[in-house]
């Protein structure tokens, strides 16, 4: 047994009849309607591990659980400091991610896990502690628009990401913008995301060259920012929450799906996978998105 309630179970070798899964669907059934139709994120809990979130931003419509927020930082002696309760965004990045996710999955509940604040030292400790906490809390989706290049932390992040994978937390990470290592975006247990060139927040692609698995909008993205301001941002940091929002839609409609199945559903409806569909449908969800989501997205555009 490991920490966080994760208990490895034995693998069984039985005839497939014994392991039959009533109601299991085939890939042929995975249509836009089946994957996303009518979904709005209801019942889904999303953690954003970042610089904090301005929970009182009116554009977020109260979707942020301010009282459930938590902050991890490092004191002068290098010790980890944990503080529960409401906090603000130190930079604007976390609020930007929250705004993107909320625009796609408006009914999802968002919790801020603040690991980036003033100062430069000990951030990997705080980052790891924040992700570990989010996995322990069983969030359905965890957005990580940050990473660490420190190899010393690779194993620790690998362990917590695997634990999230097996305990049903889908971890969505921003890939590095250049060809250098960034953890945990290199791990198979996470969904790693980079930018595509679209200005459509709902259009995404499957990347044929892993470890980055999906490409979503991340260029000139209009975002919320700290202090109730707005900004226009570019980077993989903003592609990840688009996929996190879409994953929140899937998990709200199909809570029974495991992380690898959510990945599969995303892959099945990616723009470059749905080649035979008419252009207005291929890779887009607009035909089946909830009216609320569409209204918000149009307003944001």
């Amino acid at each position: 047994m490991t920490d966080g309630g994760f208990r490895p179970r034995p693998a069984w070798s039985r005839d497939s009849v014994m392991l039959r899964m009533p109601g299991a669907i085939s890939l042929d059934d995975v249509s836009d309607e089946w994957v996303f139709g009518g979904a709005d994120g209801s019942g889904v809990r999303v953690a954003i591990v970042d610089s904090g979130i301005d929970a009182d931003n009116p554009e977020l419509d109260g979707c942020v659980d301010a009282d459930g927020a938590i902050e991890f930082s490092v004191d002068r002696e290098g010790g980890l400091v944990t503080r529960e309760g409401p906090h603000d965004d130190s930079f604007g990045h976390g609020t930007a991610c929250a705004g993107i996710i909320h625009s796609i999955a408006p009914k999802a509940e968002i919790t801020s896990v603040k690991v980036l604040g003033p100062g430069l030292s000990g951030k990997s400790i705080a980052f790891h502690a924040g992700l570990d906490w989010a996995v322990d809390q069983g969030f359905d989706v965890v957005n990580l628009s940050l990473g660490t290049r420190k190899r010393d932390w690779a194993l620790a992040f690998h362990d917590v990401c695997d634990r999230g994978y097996f305990t049903n937390s889908l971890i969505v990470t921003a890939a590095n913008n250049v060809q250098s290592v960034s953890y945990p975006s290199l791990f198979a247990s996470v969904v790693s995301v980079a930018c595509n060139t679209t200005d459509d927040p709902l259009r995404y692609h499957a990347n044929p060259e892993p470890p980055t698995e999906f490409l979503a909008r991340g260029i000139d993205v209009p975002t919320l920012w700290k202090g109730h301001t707005t900004s226009v941002q570019t980077g993989n940091s903003y592609a990840a929450p688009h996929i996190a929002g879409l994953a929140a839609l899937i998990r709200s409609k199909h809570p029974e799906l495991r992380p690898f199945q959510v990945k599969t559903a995303l892959w099945a409806r990616a723009g470059n996978v749905v080649e035979s569909a008419p252009p207005e449908i291929a890779g887009r969800l607009s035909r089946v998105m909830s009216a609320t989501s569409l209204t918000r997205l149009r307003a944001r555009a």
């Binding site: 930079f91 628009s145 940050l146 700290k226 301001t229 707005t230 900004s231 226009v232 980077g235 940091s237």
Partner: peptide, 19 residues
Amino acid sequence: AGFVATSGQPAAMQISADD
């Protein structure tokens, strides 16, 4: 710069006049 140093992610942004 502080955010980039701690997050490891590049930041490209247009700044609103009131920030």
